Simulated scan of single mutants.
Amino acid sequence: MTSTAFRIGGDLSVRRLGFGAMHLATEPGPARETSLAVARRAVELGITLIDTAYLYGGGANEELLAEALHPYPDGLLITTKVGVAQSGPLGEWQLAGRPEVLRDQVEQALRRLRVERIELLQLHRVDPRTPLADQVGTLRDLRTEGKIGRIGLSEVTVDELDQARRIVDIASVQNRYNLLDREHEPVLAACAAAGIAFLPWRPVAWGESGARAEVAAVAAELDATPTQVALAWLLGRSPVILPIPGTARIDHLEENLAAERLHLTRAHHDRLDRLPELTQGSVSSVTTEAG
């Protein structure tokens, strides 16, 4: 039977099926009120892992979660990401891994989330203009200072993961991965071998799963949706996978969580494993679609 829990870093227990907050609207108005309700409903339904980032609205997403959920219930992990910033005449988002930037973004995240320590802090992207050792070393120093509990990386290669692990313990990796896009299979394998949590972003291929006849057929056989099949496949793919599907609707949130109860047989897994990939290609720039 598929386990529904995982210990990040070997000690921080979370429910494997989490929630990605990226799609929650933060501007004042009815949409924001709905976002607050979705975040609260996620916790009511037992979600213990919520993913956000400075990139999501320049910190507005973090502030929304704090408004919705603080004081946080015991066992709730809100993980955030740093390492991108707005600069230039048009305020474009760019990679920003300089130590002073990372330090400032962590301090600001602590304030916005209303916490004294971020239990899991992830580097949103590796900035090629700054040595990886400086970026990871800064996060290691912040951990030593007690401002970070555990360190994660996002959108990294196996080599980058290996380099980072020679500097500090890495508790999680957040790379793009789903039923139709398995470009980062080697990274997943490395995480599985080391017991590192793997948080796939874009976990359901944004509706493309339902366009595949085989996925639709499996969904029909199980009286489920293609999205539920895609999430159940991820949960069965490796015990280190922690999917974080995002939505701005309560009904979709409840639908996603129901995937945890969906049983895919070995035959179902074999059929889905053989699907040809629809690889999206590498992310070359930072956008609001980034995980």
Rank of each mutant, 00 (worst) to 15 (best):
L153E: 11
L64M: 10
A39T: 10
A31K: 02
A211S: 14
G137V: 13
A217V: 04
E67W: 01
V101W: 06
E63L: 07
E155V: 04
A205F: 08
G57H: 03
E27I: 06
A85D: 12
D51Y: 07
L102G: 08
T144W: 08
Y56N: 07
Q94G: 12
G97Y: 10
P89S: 08
G18K: 00
R212G: 02
L77D: 01
L275I: 07
R150P: 08
L275D: 09
G9K: 08
Q108S: 05
P89N: 06
H268W: 12
D273R: 00
A219S: 06
G207L: 04
H70I: 06
G57W: 04
L257Q: 09
L36H: 07
R40V: 10
V240D: 03
V229E: 15
A66K: 00
A68W: 12
P131D: 05
L188T: 11
L257I: 06
P99E: 05
D223R: 08
T157I: 14
P128N: 11
Y54H: 15
Q105A: 06
G137E: 09
R150F: 03
C191D: 06
H184Y: 15
I148Y: 12
V84S: 13
E44Q: 13
V38T: 11
V283R: 13
L121P: 12
G29K: 13
G210L: 05
A258S: 07
A193Y: 04
H268I: 04
A205R: 14
S282E: 10
L123K: 03
D159F: 06
G210N: 04
G149R: 07
L222S: 08
R176H: 13
L77E: 01
D51C: 01
R140P: 14
H268V: 02
R32G: 11
A189C: 02
R129S: 15
A267E: 15
L36V: 15
A39M: 07
P89H: 10
T34F: 04
R165H: 06
R32A: 09
A267L: 06
S282I: 11
L12N: 00
Q86F: 11
G281I: 10
N175T: 10
Y72H: 09
I47H: 00
L12R: 00
L102R: 00
R41D: 10
G18F: 00
A193W: 02
E44N: 03
D141R: 15
L69V: 00
V156I: 11
P28K: 01
Q108L: 05
N256C: 07
D74Y: 03
T279P: 04
I151C: 14
H263E: 15
N256F: 04
S87A: 15
E183Q: 14
V84I: 09
R166E: 04
A197L: 02
L199P: 05
D169S: 15
V173Q: 02
E63K: 02
I196H: 01
P128R: 09
D169G: 14
L95T: 14
